[in-house]
Amino acid sequence: MTVTTRPAGPVAPRAVRRRSPAPRRPRPPLPPLSDPRLVATVAVVTVAVLAGWFVLQTVALGGLTQSRSQNVLHSALREQLEAQTAPTGTVEPGDPVALLTIPTLGLEQVVVEGTASSDLQAGPGHRRDTPLPGQRGASVLYGRSLTWGAPFRSVSTLLPGDGIQVTTAQGEFVYRVEGVRRAGDPLPGTTTARLTLVTTDVDRFMPSGVVYVDAVLLGDPVVGTGRALAVPESEKALGTDPGGLPLLAVGLGVLLATVLGVVRLHGTLPARVLWTLGLPVVLAGLWLTGTQAGQLLPNLF
């Protein structure tokens, strides 16, 4: 019994392959579940697979998702800017609102509306109760520092004087970085238009505190057409979005159902057919699970 080292759908396929010379035989009995070591091993492997996948997806694969979202958002924004239909005021959360460029970091990101954890999986988010960049007032953008492409991973290295360029429906705006601020630092002085990038410091894969990069608009601000009066807790700094819990349950359910299905079918189908059928479903389930579980992470991670 060496089967238990295999991660996904671990028991069945290997068992099938070993017994493949006699496919039509009735299903062989599963190893007795009464063996506590086997139960422990299966449990540990399941948890490890899920945990490993979670880390893999948030830190590594999430970047792929994010860059695809960025591509889609980028073309949507380009189209809107060209057609002059890009938003100047309130927007549906998730829609693109601006193009953020930080030349010194080589950063170019499409900013989406809303700062809920799910919105920030696609790119930096504009906090909905602040004016859009370029408009009079203090505009606030949130971005992730570790997961889902980590667009804001290096913004805390910006130095005073660095430029930040934002393109919205109302034009191109250039901001000059004033400084990087952490909890306890004095608040910045007053100006008519300010942009604040918010993310977290990362210390050994752990976020260690919120960091703010303040920038001041060069030139004259424009006037917007309104915005949300307040945002829910989930869209504030370090807010988590429990809205994905139902889908998370669905994802886990899909995984469970697939595993049970594979176990049920093993012995009736050849192993490579089972792998071919099962693996995509398992991957899709894992992907869904990871995405939804990622929304439970605070939005700035």
């Binding site: 060496t2 238990t4 948890v47 945990a51 490993g52 979670f54 894969f205 752990m206 976020p207």
Partner: peptide, 26 residues
């Protein structure tokens, strides 16, 4: 939040532990 803060290191740790632990078990 404090619990979630360690989510990613914890995930890594669990995976690593399993990677080491399961062969040991075997």
């Amino acid at each position: 939040l404090n619990a979630l803060r360690a989510a990613i290191p914890a995930g890594l740790a669990v995976t690593a532990a399993a990677a080491v632990g399961v062969p040991t078990l075997r």
